[in-house]
Design a protein around this nucleic acid. Sequence first.
DNA 1: AATTGTGAATTGATTCACAGCT
DNA 2: AGCTGTGAATCAATTCACAATT
Lengths: 205, 205
Amino acid sequence: MTKEIIPRKTIYRLSQYHRILQRLQSNDVPTVSSENLAKTAGVKSPQLRKDLAYFGQMGTRGLGYNVDALVSRLDQVLGTTRLQPVALIGVGDLGSALLKYQGFAREGFEIVVGFDLAPNHRHHQGPMPVLPMGDLAREITERQIKMAILTVPATHAQEVTNQLVSAGIQAILNFAPIILQVPDQVVVNNVDLALELENLSYFIR
Amino acid sequence: MTKEIIPRKTIYRLSQYHRILQRLQSNDVPTVSSENLAKTAGVKSPQLRKDLAYFGQMGTRGLGYNVDALVSRLDQVLGTTRLQPVALIGVGDLGSALLKYQGFAREGFEIVVGFDLAPNHRHHQGPMPVLPMGDLAREITERQIKMAILTVPATHAQEVTNQLVSAGIQAILNFAPIILQVPDQVVVNNVDLALELENLSYFIR
DNA sequence: AATTGTGAATTGATTCACAGCT
DNA sequence: AGCTGTGAATCAATTCACAATT
């Protein structure tokens, strides 16, 4: 069962479950039923059970899921067992805001280095170095950083992406409103803010 | 045909097509084929044709799609014919960055008012007023604002959402990492940044 | 008695393949 | 000849319903 192909949407939901379970954990809840967990995550309970069952037996019939055990297993599956270093490219308004965003640290990610065309004084606020683009390849390769957040203008996004890929980046969270061309082994998730608004506006009657 | 139910994913893609078409338009490209447009959007051509055909005849067989005509039609369908006013709740780091984000204006949205628990000096940079939460209901109702961007901490998100709904907000772009409970007639799109990173980390081997 | 895990049924989305216009 | 529009076929995801387990 561990060798099936897992739907991408399932992986998304696993991350959701993971976060909710962490909350339950810090509230010392020992056990949760699929019914309960599913409701909080906004899905139906068979969906949740099927999602979890991709990774083998996870719960106990009659009882539910052990919260601690499930969190560990999901940590393992999602690869969030240890702090993951992340590079941020493009330290403008949005990039700066993401640097300060606490949500990342809470989920086990740390932005360890930033890159910008023109690093300047306003970048020297925190402990994180902001380096010029010229240092990108060396720094990412040497530190073996695998994930990048891309907050550069759309016009530069593809070019920077090519550099990231050469440097060994394997996953990109892309805020530029274009479809990036990457080799198969590199994953891209797009966050397109204007698209989300435009999509919402359809539903306003 | 205009009365069928349109898949939600189709609406997302329409917004993507819309943006690409706008770019073609400003480059004075008169006509585009489904093959071409689909490639840029990262989908297969029958998909694109089906998406467009939900809204009636859009192209000309043998020729392709007229760019100007299609942009107008999509404006109409998506409700982006005129500038849409948006309220932003929670003017912290992320909220401030979104205020300055040019991508919204370019797609026809304007953040016309901000709300924060504690409006202060650093909010008085642009022409946009930042008001205390107490003014939310009155202001949104009076100005008939229909869309809101929610960038408050997760702990306050549901409570603020309730206020927004009472004030008549119909669509919410939510950055708080929780599932908001809203009545059926209100639409929520979630942007969950930590979730995106966590999801990416699964694909790193 | 409660609740998981899962094969079967259903629903939904995508792709194919070609008829129908221009 | 070229390219759209679409019914039919395929593929994928969700939900149901219940047997299996504690």
